[in-house]
Design a binder for these strands. Structure first.
Lengths: 146, 146
DNA sequence: CCCGCTTGCTTGACACACTGAAATATTCAG
DNA sequence: CTGAATATTTCAGTGTGTCAAGCAAGCGGG
């Protein structure tokens, strides 16, 4: 599959790597900015986004966010203080606490998603076919890369 | 060009947006991990990467990193303490301090870049033509989106 | 010349994200 | 029932980031 492994990447590859870097940077700025408009930090926005889909135990949140559970405690604390998230006991296991978005939390998450769709949509400039091919290329990248 | 503006994005667009999100997440993990292997934080690695190309005044660094100058002070302080960066006076203007990578700093930056090329190369699985078309699509995205 | 404005950098106080270790509560296997 | 494993929290410590204030150096007009 790979035409090269440890060998020097060619100019084209370097350029693509660079472009990906730019896209990543742009995406991040937009994300943080959208979060800030709702008085949230990036971490809080990501966590709230997860909880807007379904309640999750703290442990699962930590896994999804790829950080230590002790870190999640603080983020949930702050969102809870703002009334966007609440902690509920898990009826099946009294050790676990389920974090769940409140109605207001889901509302904020929805607003955030929409702000992001706008922000993320430099895609709008691409035709249907181009989007199709971009989708396939990105899928391939994600598959190959581990 | 754009088939829609404020209207609901179609399923394909949503999927692409999602894929971009995944690529961004993956890229970030790899970046942080590569930095950590050199005992650097992401911010330190980014700053060192900039300085490995050319010395820059603190002010310019803040602009490139999109943060406050007062923040740059701390990051440069830590890199300077590790001997990877040094502050020099600007002969043209005694107010400005030029941050420059030391030899060791450039060496670390080089190692980091290579680690990143590896990490960033889920691209290796794509053919030359595919990379070409990916490059064009990414360029279009970046152009359109501002 | 020198006064006042601007510019570049640093400092200090503060919030948040994050980690790692220790404490607590609960589950679960033997 | 006892001891190991699991879920969460607390605490101390580091780094990133902001904002306001301070200091030094450039710069323009009287």
């Amino acid at each position: 599959m790979a035409a090269q492994r440890k060998t020097r990447p060619d100019a084209l590859t370097l350029e693509v790597v660079d472009l990906v870097g730019s896209v990543v940077a742009r995406y991040h700025e937009d994300y943080e900015e959208a979060a800030a408009r709702h008085s949230l930090t990036g971490a809080q926005a990501r966590l709230l986004g997860l909880l807007s889909l379904e309640p999750l135990p703290m442990r699962r949140l930590a896994q999804k966010l790829k950080c230590e559970p002790s870190n999640v405690t603080g983020i949930v604390d702050r969102l809870e203080a703002r009334g966007l998230v609440e902690r509920r006991p898990d009826p099946a296991d009294r050790r676990v606490k389920l974090a769940a978005a409140t109605d207001e939390g889901r509302e904020v998450a929805r607003g955030l998603r929409e702000a992001l769709h706008f922000a993320r949509e430099p895609l709008a400039g691409l035709s249907h076919e181009e989007r199709l091919s971009l989708r396939d290329l990105l899928r391939r990248m994600l598959d190959e890369g581990a």
